[in-house]
Every structure is written in C-alpha cells, then in structure tokens.
Amino acid sequence: MYMRKQVLKHIGCICIVLALGLALFNVYDTFRARKSEEDILAAYNLKNDLNPDIWIDPDMDMPEVELDGLSCIGTIEIPSLDIKLPVTSAFTYDLMKLAPCRYSGSVYKGNMVIAAHNSWFHFGRIHSLDPGSKVVFTDALGNQFEYRVVLIETLTPDSVEDMISSDYPLTLFTCTLDAKNRVTVRCK
C-alpha cells in the first residue's frame, strides 16, 4: 500500500511539472507569435507603396505584398483591443502561427473571412468586443474599409458553410479556449 501511494505521488508530481511546462510553452508561443507579427507588419509597412486612388473592381483579385515568401493582402485593425495585424493571403495552420489568415472571400466582394489563433496578441480577445466596435481592414493598396461589430456568435468547427456564407461583409473567427468551437465576430 505504501509503495502504491509513493508511485501515485510521483505520477502526480510529474503531471504537475508537465502541466507547468505546457503552460510556459503556450506563453512562449504567444510572445513568439507577437514578435513574428510585429516583424511582418514592419516589413509590410516598409515594402508597401500605398496607392489608394486605384479604382476597385469587385471581381479583381486582392493585391498582395510579398515579404520573404509570405504573401500579405493587408492589415486588420481593432482599435478597442489595440490590435493591428498583417493578414496573409492564404490560410494554413503554419501561416496562422505567424499572422491572421484570409480564410475565404474578398473585401472587395464583401464576403471576407479572417481566421487567427486564440492568443492574447491575435484574436484571443475578440469575444469581448461590443456591438458597434470599430474594425478596419486596409488592403495592400492602402484602401481602408471600416466596419462595425454587429454580432458575436459561437459556431461549431463543422459549421464551415455558416462561417463563409453569410450576409456580413467581414467575419473574424478564432477557437474558443477549449478549442471545441469558434468565436465568430460578424461585421457590417
């Protein structure tokens, strides 16, 4: 009996150490992502020759700025959360480690969906936005598109059609803390 208690005690200690290690890694990964997005945003601002006077055809492809093999279509800004982030032109889980990604659509067609990690510096706080909060997307040409938060909802991971087929011109989403659902912010 004594031996069994000792083994359980050691297993418990190992679990606590592993949990602390995982928590520390998550903190490290959050700050690594922040540094990465700051570097991308700085390079984006240096390389981007803004020309917002170009007429926009809703059917045209969104212009891109190439940064060391990373293609960005613009920036997303949420002033109430003090967020300004570059947005990549494509969605992959590896790209989401660097910056928010265009999941689908186009700002010109009024159907853009942007996904980002649920970290403090990415979209981890979008669940706290109030209706009416301002969201600004600036494309690679310098055209600004201003939106207001209309609705915050939670969707299941398999609700892809609900995510991309809506009447909202801009949708932002991220995982919930337990990663079982998606916090979805609809903007008009």
Results as ranks from 00 to 15, higher is better:
38 E>D: 08
94 D>A: 10
34 R>Y: 09
74 G>M: 05
77 E>S: 07
77 E>L: 00
53 D>L: 03
92 T>F: 09
53 D>C: 04
90 A>I: 09
91 F>V: 05
73 I>D: 00
86 P>K: 04
57 D>G: 07
87 V>D: 02
66 E>N: 13
40 I>S: 05
70 L>F: 04
69 G>P: 13
64 E>T: 07
49 D>K: 15
44 Y>L: 08
76 I>P: 02
32 R>A: 12
63 P>G: 11
74 G>D: 04
30 T>A: 10
72 C>N: 05
84 K>G: 08
83 I>E: 01
87 V>C: 04
40 I>P: 02
33 A>Q: 14
59 D>N: 11
65 V>C: 02
49 D>I: 15
89 S>E: 04
34 R>D: 14
75 T>I: 02
79 P>V: 08
83 I>A: 06
54 I>N: 05
49 D>V: 15
93 Y>N: 15
42 A>G: 01
90 A>P: 00
43 A>N: 04
39 D>V: 01
94 D>C: 10
41 L>K: 14
70 L>E: 10
80 S>L: 05
85 L>F: 00
59 D>Y: 03
84 K>W: 00
59 D>W: 04
81 L>K: 11
92 T>M: 12
78 I>A: 02
56 I>V: 14
86 P>Q: 04
51 N>W: 08
71 S>K: 06
90 A>G: 02
65 V>N: 03
72 C>G: 03
63 P>V: 13
60 M>R: 08
70 L>T: 15
40 I>F: 07
33 A>W: 00
38 E>N: 06
40 I>A: 11
